[in-house]
Design a protein around this nucleic acid. Structure first.
Lengths: 237, 237
DNA sequence: ACCTGAACACCGTTCAAGT
DNA sequence: ACCTGAACACCGTTCAAGT
């Protein structure tokens, strides 16, 4: 991408320019994200990041206390993108479905970032706005405070876990594409029908399963069951 | 710890003994697992492993092609432990519940191993026997081949994802216990009631949620919905 | 056959020195 | 105030040399 050329002619972050290096947290995060997306999670290195920014590899430590904080910044960026401009639907179930799809979409749009961040995210990055929306939807469904809290954590954790799990599989397929994925498909197809009769019987279907379909199924199962409990909870009051 | 001094005086793997170093894949894996459990995922280093085994840090490369293969070995060890001695129950739902609990228990018994392995696991480590059991249970429930394959992948992936997610939180809490977890609990309690009314209303309940309870809820929700579909599928045939 | 030791090309972080 | 450059204590992997 070329420099868009803003009205002020100064402030161009060309490679290897010490004179006026702008080096802001936002620029660092953006560069880090681009690097990770281009070359995978392992490419995020203070030294690589330094050359990418055209500065000394220790310069970023003036804006972040360490590499960990950069990863945390990427996590917030990801959640931010997932929630940007979201407005709750009328129906509570539509709200939860749309929100879950947004989380998955963001994770799959930047799978390497998602993998990097998955183990580091802790819940604070899940952001108050998302939590408030989910809990609001659950109370709208008819749950009391305690149940709303419980099912919020169940749904949020499961959607985050499943999304980053899927992202990690995507990254694996990308970087070690010597066929880890193809390997298990072939192995499953060649499985012994006498030792594993059930597996052998359905092996042909296994490879054909669509990832998006699978996510939708998880979501439907969870929300079907939650809806059932909501109706029961409403009836009991 | 001092040497216990077994009955057979030979064959004692004391620290730093080159003479007769047994150095088998099994010993390497066992040492690696102990190291990771003792000092966390980042402690698994060929050099650390070498000193732990009392040998040169490149010696293990005679038994594993690289560090990656060691991690894969740990993954298989973990799944192996989860499935060891398992026999299906009479009721298909009991079978699936017991199996899911075993996976979670194994992940929480060795959370650092689970984290290390989570992103590397690919599906081949999920083992044929576990797959066969799950698919068998689903067919017993009344599903056809295609649905049994679908729900197997949905359930297996979700349980694995949620279990390793929980393990990663455990490890985070352990190693960065400067209070990442406590931090978000305090932040949630201090949240603005006008901007996030729903969140503020239930914040008190959030911290009290039990992790085991949460896993059980995920499992119940999924299996409730699956059971419903099984009944529907059986009726249509 | 298996292991060692040196070497190579990397890491994150600290810190005195520059401007 | 912000950045540089050297230094420190680490990495995984390769490869000739030993036994």
């Amino acid at each position: 991408m070329t420099d868009p050329g803003t009205t002020m002619p100064a402030n161009r972050p060309r490679r290897g320019r010490p004179p006026t290096s702008p080096l802001t947290p936002a620029l660092i995060l953006e560069t880090a994200r681009a690097l990770v997306e281009r070359e995978g999670p392992d490419a995020l290195t203070l030294r690589r990041l330094g050359t990418e920014l055209g500065s000394n590899h220790t310069a970023v430590l003036r804006h972040f206390t360490g590499k960990d904080e950069i990863v945390l910044g990427l996590a917030e960026q990801l959640i931010e993108e997932a929630l940007a401009g979201f407005v709750p639907r009328e129906d509570w179930r539509d709200t939860l479905t749309a929100l879950a799809r947004r989380v998955r979409t963001a994770c799959l749009a930047h799978p390497a970032v998602a993998v990097l961040v998955a183990t580091r995210v802790s819940r604070r990055a899940a952001e108050f706005r998302g939590a408030d929306t989910v809990i609001g939807a659950l109370r709208q469904a008819g749950f009391g405070e305690l149940d709303a809290a419980r099912y919020y954590r169940v749904l949020a954790d499961t959607v985050l876990a499943v999304s980053s799990y899927e992202a990690s599989v995507t990254v694996l397929d990308d970087e070690a594409r010597r066929g880890d994925r193809m390997a298990w498909q072939r192995e499953y197809l060649a499985v012994s029908p006498v030792r594993y009769p059930h597996l052998a019987a359905v092996a042909g279907h296994l490879a054909a399963i669509d990832a998006e379909d699978q996510f939708e199924t998880v979501l439907e199962l969870l929300l079907d069951a939650v809806e059932l409990r909501a109706l029961r909870a409403a009836r009991e009051r």
